[in-house]
Design a protein around this nucleic acid. Structure first.
Lengths: 154, 154
DNA sequence: AAAAAGTCTATAAATAAAGTAGACTTTATA
DNA sequence: TATAAAGTCTACTTTATTTATAGACTTTTT
């Protein structure tokens, strides 16, 4: 049930891109890598994967960098995780994007499958409805709360 | 977000144990392995792990085998998965059983963490409330439906 | 032309997953 | 009490995946 580092890094980068580049120019890999403490060359690969999947656009050369290919309201965490980590489903026989027949006698009556289908649906519900815009907003809101708390304390 | 083979095999074995041994004696590894198409020696290791975790009892010698250490109503899929695959949480910083500080500046405001906390809670809700008894019952019910369908057809 | 950026491909290193082997112990029963 | 049927334990091998690194290359701006 674990998210790989690749998935984690990719999500962090995308969220940072959504928070920052609200219109303003491209963001460089090294900035994100430094801020999120990700190995630059590893993040590079991740960004290319995300680009090839159509979630990012890039611009080479001086002043270049990356920006979201679509508005942050139209990119979900689910899309990102699928690109970097593959199917959300815990087992293939309940996967939408990468279904594979299991060895059980009858899929329709397999108890494990029925339970795992619940899990996959719960995960998909959350990740496919969480957009980068929402996540970034939630973060900003939490930060504002934290600041208010800090000020009251001072 | 994937369940390992070890987890999958262990869950299948436990569900089979719950379905079968409703009181009647112990079940042998080789029976389960054959029925579920699991490598015998691999299943052996898994069963020992489950035993050491207190979820199974075993009896050596002729007529020996495994049976659930507690009633099927008191063993959840969550317990089994945690023993075999570790924490349910996608990332450590939202894990109950194996929490670890993440590198982000402030955990309380980290957008990714807030989203993954939702996921971990959804998974835990499902797996910690699904007992072996329920899963086995669900399976039996689905099988009954399938049989009725088959008879109508015939 | 030079510098700043991304691109691409290969490969290394580390870790985890999956499976295998074999010697050993326990227990019923013939 | 010998034997066969079961589980136990430990170590190892193999394979796959994950994580990371290296370096040559391309694009773009100034």
């Amino acid at each position: 049930m674990k998210l790989s580092k690749r998935g984690e890094y990719g999500l962090k980068a995308m969220i940072e891109l959504a928070s920052r580049a609200a219109g303003r120019g491209a963001v460089q890999i090294k900035d994100i890598a430094q801020h999120e403490q990700i190995p630059v060359k590893f993040l590079e690969q991740i960004m290319v994967t995300l680009k090839n999947a159509g979630l990012l656009h890039s611009k080479a050369g001086v002043g270049g960098g990356y920006h979201l290919a679509r508005p942050a309201t139209e990119i979900t965490l689910g899309q990102i995780v699928r690109v970097l980590d593959g199917p959300l489903a815990p087992i293939r026989c309940v996967s939408q994007m990468a279904y594979e027949r299991c060895v059980c006698e009858d899929e329709k009556t397999c108890g494990l499958r029925l339970a795992m289908l619940d899990v996959r649906n719960a995960i998909a519900d959350i990740l496919d409805s969480a957009t980068l815009a929402e996540v970034a907003a939630r973060q900003k809101k939490a930060e504002a709360h934290a600041h208010r708390r800090a000020r009251r304390k001072a």
